[in-house]
């Protein structure tokens, strides 16, 4: 058995953890798995189809997972930034979870089909990845992998949008957001969306209807609430049943924050959040 499965088996057998949150083979490709007995550890898989960011299963909103007992979780390098965020925001205590880092060389755009990582198969968010070897971990598994190829298309698309006229941009977003049906799947899979009661679940101030006015408000508010916290794991975009390019919004804001406040999401639980902190000398050229 592989290194990962052996480690999981041991953790469960020793009683160090009660559940290993990882990936297994499902009817339509790889999916999240919750392994609770040593003999089931065989079911675990880890390869380039493991696109899911599992860290949201650690948030206090997932009561049914917490009920299983102390978890171990399999994370990719990128996922550790979410984990660091959850620790930073007091949602997860580092000592309450065993972190198994898996070395990663990028995941697939279409995880339902097995394929090698290449320029045209790799998920866009993996391009330019700098964190292939997770650091915030208790155990590290897998062989070092080469960096995923290619340049981010999202950044390219943002540049295109920035170059458009405001009317064109508005038309673009109207077209995209008109497909939104307000299922809020983007929120539910997001490790940052751990609010006990989301603003969107209240009758005020957001309109819950799936018309363009309500959709614009929801996506702007969500983007604002993600500002400085989004780690671009791309889960919201992956799960959107309407294929709305949500990464464009979050990535744009991340770029604004980096340009203005010099902050990038990292895997350090001690770092400061850009929204929620300030510098007296922050730019204010837009303020009268």
């Amino acid at each position: 058995m592989g290194e990962l499965q052996e480690l999981a088996r041991k953790l469960l057998a020793d009683g160090a953890v009660k559940v290993v949150i990882g990936y297994e083979e499902g009817p339509r490709g790889v999916r999240p798995a919750f392994i609770t007995t040593p003999k089931d550890a065989d079911r675990l898989v880890f390869d380039e189809r493991c696109v899911h960011n599992l860290t949201m299963y650690l948030t206090p909103t997932r009561k049914h997972i917490a009920a299983l007992g102390k978890p171990a979780i399999i994370v990719k390098g990128c996922d550790t930034r979410s984990l660091a965020g959850l620790i930073r925001q007091s949602q997860v205590k580092r000592e309450n979870v065993v972190v198994i880092g898996a070395r990663c060389g990028g995941v697939l755009k279409d995880p339902s089909v097995k394929a090698a990582i290449a320029e045209d198969t790799v998920a866009d968010r993996c391009r330019g990845c700098t964190i292939r070897e997770p650091r915030l971990v208790d155990h590290l598994v897998g062989e070092p992998k080469p960096a995923p190829p290619g340049k981010s298309l999202v950044d390219q698309k943002i540049d295109e949008l920035d170059a458009m006229t405001p009317e064109q941009r508005l038309a673009f977003w109207h077209e995209q957001l008109s497909r939104c049906i307000r299922c809020h799947a983007c929120r539910e899979v997001c490790p940052n969306c751990f609010c006990v009661r989301c603003l969107a679940d209240k009758a005020e101030p957001l309109e819950s209807s799936a018309h363009l006015r309500g959709n614009m408000a929801w996506h702007m508010v969500r983007a604002m609430h993600q500002a400085g916290r989004c780690v671009d794991c791309g889960e919201c975009e992956r799960v959107c049943p309407a294929d709305i390019p949500l990464r464009l919004l979050n990535r744009k804001i991340a770029r604004v924050i980096e340009a203005r406040f010099g902050h990038r999401p990292d895997d350090d639980p001690e770092s400061t959040a850009p929204i929620g902190s300030f510098q007296p000398e922050d730019g204010q050229e837009f303020i009268r």
């Binding site: 999916r31 999240p32 798995a33 919750f34 949201m56 049914h64 997972i65 299983l68 049906i181 299922c183 809020h184 799947a185 929120r187 539910e188 899979v189 009758a203 309109e207 819950s208 209807s209 799960v239 049943p241």
Partner: peptide, 25 residues
């Protein structure tokens, strides 16, 4: 239900899920 996010994407694409809410705007 362990992996379920409770997002309801299933219901929104379902041809027979018909539950609804009534809101004033």
């Amino acid at each position: 239900a362990l992996a379920c996010h409770g997002c309801g994407a299933c219901a929104s694409v379902c041809p027979t899920c018909h539950c609804f809410d009534i809101v004033d705007e």
